[in-house]
Amino acid sequence: MEERKNKSLIDLYSTMNDQDIIVYYKGPFDDIILSEIGNKIRRKAFDSPKAGKRLFAVFMELAQNVSLYSFEKNRLESVDRWGVGTLVVYETATSYILMSGNMVKNEVLEQIVKKCEEINGLDHESLRAMKRKYRSSELPADHKGGNIGLIQVALKSDAPLDIEAKRIDDEHSFFTISVSIFK
């Protein structure tokens, strides 16, 4: 059993070694982790300040979504305040790619997918209009953020939001979103 565990970790590590990975993280998305990874991303992308700023802004919104809305909460501490999830940032010759993943309830997943599909059907100006409309309306009761994070992510990135979901059981799915930012 131990041997198998190690092997899968080695496989995971080798897979990641094939890409130029800036950050790979799985665990609770607490405020200190966000700050550490955020600073790392800022420093890494310093050569291209504009792309760096966008990458940082996108990271912050996606990470805060995991932190606030992941169904899975931190079990390492007695307070289950922080959402648990995973995040990968890597670079290709032309882009930075940022992916995040976390558990969601299936009914929440439906709302997120619907919102992402709506976002992906809009051009830049319509996205700005959508952001203004959402920002000007009252926050849903269960929202702690601004309710415009995904729209902001789309505005700051260069390709449609690439979303995927894997059903875990009747109630839950694992949701991932991938975003590209041109250098």
């Binding site: 802004a57 920002r135 926050l139 309710n147 415009i148």
Partner: peptide, 11 residues
């Protein structure tokens, strides 16, 4: 720089 929660509060 401001995140989207801040932007709502700035509004």
């Amino acid at each position: 720089y401001f995140n989207t929660s801040s932007s709502r509060a700035i509004l």
